[in-house]
Amino acid sequence: MSNPKNLTAYRTWNRKYWMLALALLIALTGLEARTYFVEKALGQYLAWQNPGREKVGRQWQVEQKRLLAGTRLEKISKELRSREKQLASIPNFLELIRRVLQENQLVIPAQHFIRLYHTLPFFLKEHVIAPDSLIALRLQDRLDNVILNREADGVEMVLIDAQSRIENILYLSNELLDVFFKHGQSEVVDVTSDPRFAGRVFRFELFWQNLSQLPKGMQNNFLQAMPDLLTLAGPTAKVAISNKISENLVEVAVAPDNFRAVIYYLPEDWIINFVSTLEYPWMQNEEQDIL
């Protein structure tokens, strides 16, 4: 160091290298300022590393919650769809009522309700709702859903519009439901000895004769209402009219023998029409036919 030549050479060398380093730094800075090569290089490296990274961070958490929400809502809508499917599989009105009695409440779309309504025998429909009222509601687009609630004294049917407002409330009493369930069902009963049929048991032949005297339309009503009438016909068959009237419907039994009968419920005015065909005093004159 004591050598001045060496010192000068060192200073020159030192200045040169530091200047070089500085120039390099300035050049790099200039280059970076113009091309952003550092950011680009780092960005490229990070993009290359990207596939191996995890989905973390705020928006990914939100995405996770969205997935959870979707799963939950899918579960709810699946349940609803399955319930809709179950409801759609209800084949007739009686089954609908059975389901209401089991589940206490059912909500069914108006279309489906009308389909089930049409499965009722035509003379029983009036007892649920008059067809013209139903048509009026549909025409005015005032019927969207029907809610059926099980009540202590029967089933309440609430007809509601698309805004969920009540259009009409109908009640099916337990007595009427009993009629619905028993109509067309076979029962173990001896009509000749059961007190409710006493004095109104006809041999089938007499019943048929008198029925033939009714106007054609009324005859057809009887035949439609009692589809088993012809299959049960026979020399020992009897038709009995009960003294029991429920909701203006008269119980009529068609018995192939003395052990069983198929029970029907027919409108009271039909029975009055039928009875009017019997010759007076029919009970005495036809004693041998009326058991």
Partner: peptide, 12 residues
């Protein structure tokens, strides 16, 4: 009725 995720992220 539907859970928090469904309400806030379910697009109801």
């Amino acid at each position: 009725r539907f859970g928090e995720e469904a309400v806030f992220f379910g697009g109801l």
